[in-house]
């Protein structure tokens, strides 16, 4: 009976998390188009519903009812499998993210490593999609993605080592708690190098501009998913946005203090203590997602050799240096 109770709680948590995240994915597209529209002196979507608020619904219906086109010479099983791998890898990482104190689907010891494993798995969806489409553009997109993900995964993992060293744990819950009792209240200041490396690698890992070379529109049509249409295309888009949400939550949890507020802020403004933790988490998450849109609207796309040089010659040495500094500091203090 107890086991049944535990399982049903987990199922309820999964339903809540998946529906909230899918809602956020839908409105992240709306938010993105509005923000980028404003930054480029346009209005963004405004026709469907008041202020265009129903635009994601219209997009969803449209992608459901579009004709599903499969290229004749494609490798059909792999072609069907690729978007599923993408969305599965993105969704399963949600299982270990604590959204506020005590709310986590599965509180495992290896939270960070699990997220890293799942984000590296997402590359398969992209690479296999590029290969199975049997198209030049998709193929080149897949190749680029493979090289990019391998390169930036290294610096992404290494940039988090400093956080793990300071907190002494892989568990995301423990990391947040260790942060709230640290001197600054969050790790973005003592881990400023790691935070910088993490931001750059997270943008590259999710294939977002300015590192969106696997789907560079001006060179590769749409890159790895050029041959996908209808609902399979929507799955790829959803996987990309869930990836963004996961990387942003990781930034919030590891560097920005998660659902906690620094103690000195609470000391100055005691009434802030009444705000529930999930509000802080979501506000910080929105700020990170806004940052994604901001750099998309601001920065031009990197050239491919620049991307590789940045990853291997700047980010990896910087993250190694960060580990060295953190280790020495931890020994001294």
């Amino acid at each position: 009976m107890e086991l049944l109770w535990e399982i049903s709680i987990i199922v309820i948590k999964i339903v809540v998390v998946v529906s909230v995240v899918m809602f956020h994915v839908a409105y992240a597209t709306y938010f993105e188009r509005k923000v980028i529209g404003r930054m480029q002196m346009r209005m963004g979507p405004k026709e469907v519903g008041p202020l265009g608020i129903l635009q994601p619904v219209a997009d969803g219906i449209k992608s459901f009812f579009k004709e599903d086109i499969i290229p004749l010479n494609s490798d059909k099983p792999v072609f069907y499998l690729a978007p599923v791998i993408s969305i599965m890898a993105a969704m399963s990482a949600l299982a270990v993210i604590p959204f506020f104190d005590g709310f986590i689907i599965s509180n495992i010891n290896l939270g960070i490593l699990f997220i890293l494993a799942m984000s590296s798995l997402g590359a398969y969806g992209i690479v296999l999609a590029g290969w199975a489409s049997n198209s030049k553009y998709a193929f080149l997109g897949g190749l680029r993605s493979a090289a990019q993900v391998i390169s930036y995964e290294v610096s992404l993992g290494l940039s988090l080592v400093g956080v793990m060293l300071l907190a002494g744990s892989f568990n995301l819950n423990d990391i947040v708690e260790a942060q709230s009792s640290s001197v600054f209240g969050f790790y973005a200041i003592p881990q400023i190098l790691g935070f910088f490396v993490f931001i750059v690698s997270a943008v590259a890992e999710t294939n977002r501009p300015p590192f969106d070379l696997p789907e560079a529109e001006s060179e590769l049509v749409a890159g790895y998913f050029a041959e996908y249409s209808g609902f399979r295309f929507a799955l790829f888009m959803a996987a990309e946005y869930i990836g963004m949400i996961i990387m942003s939550s990781l930034a919030v949890l590891c560097f920005l203090g998660g659902w906690t507020v620094p103690y000195y802020v609470l000391y100055l403004f005691p009434f802030l203590g009444a705000v529930p933790g999930v509000v802080w988490f979501i506000l910080k998450l929105y700020a990170c997602i806004f940052f994604y849109y901001w750099i998309r609207a601001t920065l031009p796309r990197f050239r491919y050799d620049q991307l590789m040089a940045l990853g291997w010659k700047l980010l990896i040495p910087l993250s190694l240096l960060n580990i060295l500094i953190t280790g020495i500091a931890k020994l001294i203090i």
Binding site: A117, S120, Y124, A146
Partner: peptide, 26 residues
């Protein structure tokens, strides 16, 4: 051995197999 399990996925599935894929695609 949960650490070993995570490393198995990260290193073998996440890095080495992607490298294999990369070579095979060429």
């Amino acid at each position: 051995a949960e650490f070993l399990a995570a490393i198995q996925i990260i290193v073998y599935a996440g890095a080495i197999m992607v490298l294999f894929l990369f070579v095979i695609m060429l």
